[in-house]
């Protein structure tokens, strides 16, 4: 046991290795248990025609993105030009899930507000935002109370779900989409699904 003095050093290196690995993880990115599971079904009012509901099944047969957004969400503004560009290039259809447009905005006290009034306000705000920043969505739906958001395990905006032809969630992107994440992760995954399907 001549090398006994090395034991604390080895223990230290092992511990430091664990801690260094821990530093590379992002605790804000909670892995979704919904990956490879059927996307929770929903039927919500369309932003362009609130009298008409949109159901998830309508996208069956397509590979598409569900992008969670809101006009009060600052980080959404960051990814928005990329979505607009994707729409222009017709890479993949993107459906917008407008999440808690009114009550999610910390600047508005929406408690006690009637649902009709809140919906009308949400439509007005969301439409104005899309006019100002460009509308990359094939359509957007209104999740006024965030209930569908909970079904999708949304815990922040923006989040983006990649859904395959059978309506299964294949990938979840947390936070704004960046050109790198689009090129390195999302586009290859879309390719992979299209090749397999």
């Amino acid at each position: 046991m001549k090398a006994k003095f090395l034991v604390p050093l080895i223990l230290f290196i092992g511990l430091a290795g664990f801690l260094a690995f821990g530093l590379t993880l992002n605790p804000r990115e909670v892995p979704s248990p919904l990956i490879d599971k059927p996307a929770p079904n929903f039927s919500l009012a369309r932003l362009d025609d609130p009298a008409r509901p949109f159901a998830l099944e309508e996208m069956k047969g397509q590979v598409w993105l569900l992008n969670v957004w809101a006009s009060w969400c600052v980080a959404c503004r960051q990814e928005h030009p990329l979505l607009v560009q994707m729409a222009r290039q017709k890479i993949v259809p993107v459906v917008g899930l407008n999440y808690k447009e009114v009550r999610g905005d910390g600047a508005i006290n929406a408690r006690g507000m009637a649902l009709e009034a809140e919906t009308a306000m949400a439509i007005e705000r969301a439409r104005r935002w899309l006019t100002d920043h460009g509308d990359p969505y094939v359509l957007s739906v209104l999740d006024i109370d965030g209930r569908v958001g909970i079904d999708f395990g949304v815990y922040g905006v923006p989040e983006t779900f990649l859904i395959d032809t059978e309506g299964r969630i294949r990938y979840k992107h947390i936070g704004p989409i960046t050109p790198e994440s689009l090129k390195q992760v999302i586009l290859p995954k879309i390719e992979e699904i299209r090749r397999a399907g």
Partner: peptide
């Protein structure tokens, strides 16, 4: 506090 992710500078 709205639930959203700010970029660093904004944060």
């Amino acid at each position: 506090m709205p639930v959203e992710r700010f970029p660093k500078a904004l944060r």
